[in-house]
């Protein structure tokens, strides 16, 4: 990143820039996971979905030349994985987490297998919007260019909040997640509601993957997600299953991720790996802080992660 000319001011600038870029996958995956968990299911497999999304978006963008087609394909690939998870995890006495781990392995394995030919070629990237039209400083311009996907995600967060509050479907999802017995008594099909939530959540996670390969870092490799899908699951807990707080939490995680590169950009190489590990440390800290044997989490859907009888 070209921040040398700005001196130490480059650090906060790089962090802000990194936040705007790096938070996009967190945002989409956490919104997808938020929707899924509101319906009472955990989908750890979103890590695999993220990779599958990244690979398919990159591949389609490369093959067709249209990055937006890639984004749609990523969403559809996510839905495909979501269907599998939705069906498997709702079988009797099946544990969500076990299925989720299997789906991480399956999703990432499939992405690596299908994505081998696309590691070398370079695919057309998504266009970016610049927030820095007022400045002539090139560093600022490059730092403040954001992805339209970021704007889309920022818009989805309050929309999802409103969906949970003021739409019949939103109430259904919450009812199923909080008290499946109550939902059943209302004649709601728990299977369908959860399936729809998981599939829609996986769609979002797939788009999160597209932002990885078509925006930032903007290439396809097997190490592209580095656990962001799993971190997004922790992030939903941190955000108390609230979509708007998912947005803030994603920005925080995106920012934490940018600390390492930002320090490096001003020449601080010491503790480079430690700084790079900050999102993981943050995840761990959040888990430690939010878990307590003495009280339950407020906002947790009542039936989260329970296997069906």
């Amino acid at each position: 990143m070209a921040t040398e000319a700005l001196g130490l001011w480059g650090v906060p600038l790089a962090i802000i820039a990194g936040t705007l870029r790096g938070s996009v996958p967190f945002l989409f995956v956490s919104l997808g996971e938020c929707l899924t968990e509101k319906s009472g299911k955990i989908n750890l497999g979103l890590e695999g979905t993220l990779l599958m999304g990244a690979m398919s978006a990159y591949a389609v963008s490369y093959l067709t030349g249209s990055p937006w087609l890639g984004v749609i394909t990523a969403g559809i690939a996510g839905m495909f994985l979501g269907l599998i998870h939705g069906w498997l995890s709702q079988q009797p006495r099946v544990n969500d987490v076990a299925v989720g781990i299997a789906m991480i392995i399956f999703g990432s394995g499939l992405a690596f297998f299908l994505g081998k030919p696309f590691i070398q070629p370079s695919a057309p990237q998504l266009p970016t919007l610049s927030l820095a039209g007022w400045t002539q400083i090139p560093q600022l311009e490059s730092a403040l260019s954001i992805s339209p996907l970021f704007i889309l995600g920022v818009a989805i967060a309050p929309l999802m909040q409103w969906f949970f509050r003021s739409s019949r479907w939103g109430l259904l999802v919450r009812a199923v997640g909080d008290s499946p017995d109550a939902a059943k008594a209302m004649g709601i099909s728990i299977f369908k509601v959860r399936m729809a939530s998981i599939v829609a959540g996986s769609f979002l996670a797939g788009i999160g993957g597209a932002s990885l390969s078509l925006f930032y870092p903007g290439s396809w490799s097997e190490r592209i997600s580095s656990g962001q899908g799993l971190m997004a699951v922790a992030l939903v807990i941190f955000a108390r299953w609230n979509p708007v707080q998912c947005l803030y939490a994603s920005l925080l995680f995106g920012g934490a991720q940018a600390i390492g590169p930002a320090m490096q950009s001003v020449g601080i190489d010491a503790y480079y790996y430690l700084f790079n590990a900050s999102p993981y440390i943050l995840t761990l800290l959040i888990m430690v802080i939010t878990c307590s044997p003495k009280r339950t989490l407020t906002g947790a859907p009542g039936s989260l992660g329970q296997a069906q009888e």
Partner: peptide, 23 residues
């Protein structure tokens, strides 16, 4: 059979079979 995390009003509206899609 009410949903614990929702308010009385939300539960009542949800229980209706003909409640509108957008509330």
């Amino acid at each position: 059979t009410s949903v614990p995390a929702m308010t009385v009003a939300e539960n009542l509206v949800l229980s209706r079979y003909d409640s509108p899609q957008w509330i």
